[in-house]
Design a protein around this nucleic acid. Structure first.
Lengths: 247, 247
DNA sequence: TATATTTACTGACTGGTGGTCAGTTAATAA
DNA sequence: TTATTAACTGACCACCAGTCAGTAAATATA
């Protein structure tokens, strides 16, 4: 009896149509200005139907973000790291993330909202948990390569792969976010060229950061940190020790 | 004739009262759930009066953020870097930022909203420009120390002080934001302990990042990058070159 | 086939909120 | 005493997220 399956398929299609329309409208109008009426109209569906699929406006928005993250994960998987060098893989993943931010710029901008705790609180637990799962899926995927590098002895191991991945994510994502912000402000003419954010070439900075992050991981742990706590309260700055030995 | 001055003072006080009330309400209810009626009531002022001082809800919110940034700048200035070592100053500034995120956690959370381009577009140019100015003031303040370190030859100079400051900001701020997010999710019970974000101790990570960022700046530029573009497309990974020379 | 039940969907309606503005009050100027 | 200006008020409007009684169609039952 394929009726149940067909119904399920149709339900998913409806959901997909709504998500598609929402993506367009949220992108065009922004989170605040977009209205559900408009989304309903664009999806050729009544407003009530939207609420059959999503518990609230925020849930709909978060579902879009989850979809975005899944796409990002797909792009990461498409990197196809056939060569075994984890450092190269990390480079390629960072490249892929830059590409994602450019090609799917509306999705990328939407993802920045997750940073905002005020919005997060309005979301139902399941949807929030879905997003968390997708987010963790990406981080775990990347962490796998980092861990492999550590196991192979290529990467330093005075830092956990989890911490390393967070560092990667935070730095690269932060640069891309600031880039978007500076672009937005330039468009609004409220960014002076002599300001710091206005004067930095974020694409160049991204490349540099990408380089140094991988480089940081490929260094051996020569610092005087025996454990983690040593990094916590660094009273003594060893400003010349390294530089001298390197000369 | 001190009448004009007195009026101006009173006007500023009114504004201050509104901001104070708004801060409380926005913090208690979140950006979306907070209402102007409630703010008006708490400020002992009619709703119309709010609009004499702020053009919109978003403007009010952004003004709060600007105030928050000015407080942060004050905390940075209080670091009183009497010792001339720029590396130590950067440490202390990072410590101060951590302190800010802890002691003024609601202000810190509010500042994360600036990352969201969808909100930024709803704000009047002047207010947006105020915020930008405050933000730039902080970055410029920090950049001064970085530049001094470079001039003194303590810091590497294959990266501009502007870029270095952005890197600092992005990394440290990103870690603290993720920390807040993980705390919020733990409170909502939608963060599995085995997930990456759930397993990282962000305070430790912050300390490590703080350490490595300063350390990165105090390294000499031994890499094969002659200019910036070299960092853009790094095809060759020099995974052992540094580690070997350091041994 | 006729009837009952379930499922999917609709769109008018409601409550609440951001934002407005005609009108009030009070201080100052003429 | 009267006119003018400035600060402030709160009733009011437009709009929108979210609801729910009702419709239509598909499926199950008789």
């Amino acid at each position: 009896m394929g009726i149940v399956e067909r119904k399920e398929r149709e339900k998913q299609m409806r959901r997909e149509m709504i998500l598609q329309a929402a993506e367009t409208v949220f992108f065009e109008k922004g989170l605040r200005a977009a209205t559900l009426d408009e989304i309903a109209e664009k999806a050729e569906v009544s407003k009530g139907t939207i609420y059959l699929h999503f518990a609230s406006r925020e849930d709909l928005y978060y579902s879009l973000m989850t979809r975005g993250l899944l796409l990002l994960l797909k792009m990461f998987r498409d990197v196809k790291p056939e060569d075994a060098d984890p450092a190269k893989v990390l480079y390629k993943l960072a490249d892929a993330y830059l590409k994602f931010s450019q090609e799917q710029s509306y999705l990328f901008k939407m993802l920045a909202v997750v940073e905002n705790p005020a919005v997060s609180e309005q979301v139902s637990p399941e949807v929030s948990s879905d997003l968390e799962e997708a987010s963790d899926g990406i981080l775990t995927y990347v962490a796998g390569f980092v861990q492999r590098g550590m196991d192979d002895g290529i990467f330093r191991s005075d830092i956990s792969s989890h911490e390393a991945v967070i560092l990667f994510w935070v730095s690269l994502n932060g640069i891309l976010n600031l880039k978007e912000r500076s672009l937005a402000m330039k468009k609004n003419n409220c960014l002076k060229a002599e300001s710091i954010i206005g004067s930095v070439d974020f694409d160049v900075l991204y490349g540099m950061c990408q380089h140094y992050l991988v480089d940081f991981l490929t260094q051996e742990e020569t610092r005087k940190l025996s454990g983690r706590n040593a990094a916590r309260k660094p009273k003594v700055v060893q400003k010349h020790s390294k530089a001298v030995t390197q000369k």
